[in-house]
């Protein structure tokens, strides 16, 4: 495979777990809620895939990942609404609880709190650089995109983000729309977690490795728009793929190469903010 070909294949492999989480983050952004629990929800999905998959195989594992993550997300949102708790703080709690709970459960299920390799759970290659689990993950992302772009749920979500009062006047319950958005966000993070666990056929503690945060940043870099978010995910995936490919060419340590996408993204956020501040100033000028 040519260098460009392998870069594209690598990008797709990075994109497969990242895209659903970012689309899931966008789903809650549409209803006007910042879901910072993406990182924890990915871990819930990854652990559920490995745990349920070890008993009933990868397909059941994948379904368990989607469902468990969605239930946790919807449960966290329900708690936040009913207990009038700040969604940010609840998200922080979920992010702290998920790795600890997974570690405790890992001891019970796999008899280790470290890496647990499960035979038969590593997904086979469907295309060069792309596993069947990646394809399934893309399918989940595509289904959510379709749901938020072309269904009444998407329309209500956007309306909820714009004006809760107008939504109430139309007879739609904001809480239910927000709950549904969190459920969808959980489904998406479950797919991300399952794709990560299926790529190695194992449960690895903290295997989300910051992907939830990158997904959240992609939502903002993409201007909280569908096309923009997908483009930002593609940019991140390309950067991560380039960093991984560079390890074979440049004599730079892996950790330093892996840090580059994060610094680059921070720079893009600052430059982008500067650009939008200038545009706003120009619009305000007489």
């Amino acid at each position: 495979m040519s260098a460009v070909g392998s870069l594209v294949a690598g990008s797709l492999a990075f994109m497969a777990p990242l895209a659903p989480a970012a689309i899931g983050g966008l789903a809650t952004e549409y209803v006007g809620a910042l879901n910072i629990a993406l990182e924890g929800l990915i871990l819930v999905g990854a652990f559920s895939y490995a745990a349920a998959g070890s008993i009933a195989g990868p397909i059941v594992g994948f379904a368990a990942a989607l469902l468990s993550s969605a239930i946790v997300a919807a449960g966290a949102d329900l708690f936040s609404r009913k207990a009038k708790a700040d969604p940010f703080v609840v998200g922080l709690g979920v992010n702290m609880l998920a790795p600890a709970a997974a570690s405790i459960l890992s001891q019970a299920v796999f008899d280790t709190k470290g890496v647990a390799v499960v035979a038969g759970l590593q997904s086979a290659m469907a295309l060069p650089g792309l596993r069947y689990s990646d394809v399934a993950s893309f399918a989940v992302a595509a289904a959510i995109i379709a749901a938020i772009a072309a269904t009444p749920f998407g329309t209500r979500s956007r309306a909820a983000g714009m004006s809760r009062d107008s939504l109430a006047m139309a007879g739609v319950d904001y809480g239910r729309v927000r709950g549904a958005a969190y459920f969808v966000s959980g489904l998406a993070c479950g797919a991300t977690g399952a794709a990560l666990a299926a790529s190695v056929g194992a449960w690895v503690p903290n295997m989300s490795a910051g992907r939830g945060w990158i997904a959240l940043v992609a939502v903002y870099l993409g201007g909280k728009r569908l096309g923009g978010t997908v483009a930002a995910v593609a940019m991140f995936s390309l950067l991560l793929s380039a960093a991984a490919a560079a390890q074979a060419v440049v004599e730079l340590p892996a950790e330093l190469l892996l840090s580059i996408p994060y610094f680059t993204a921070a720079l893009v956020v600052i430059v982008g903010a500067r650009g939008s501040a200038r545009r706003s100033a120009r619009r305000r000028a007489p």
Binding site: G210, W213, L216, V217, Y220, P253, A254, E255, L256, L258, S259, I260, Y262, F263, A265, A266, V269, I270, V271, G272, A273, R274, A277
Partner: peptide, 24 residues
């Protein structure tokens, strides 16, 4: 200060990058 860039986003990104660099 200079661009009004969101602190939540930039701080988490820089922090993640620094964690990798210090790990190395």
């Amino acid at each position: 200060r200079l661009a009004g860039a969101d602190v939540l986003l930039t701080s988490i990104l820089v922090s993640q990058g620094v964690i990798f660099a210090v790990d190395w």
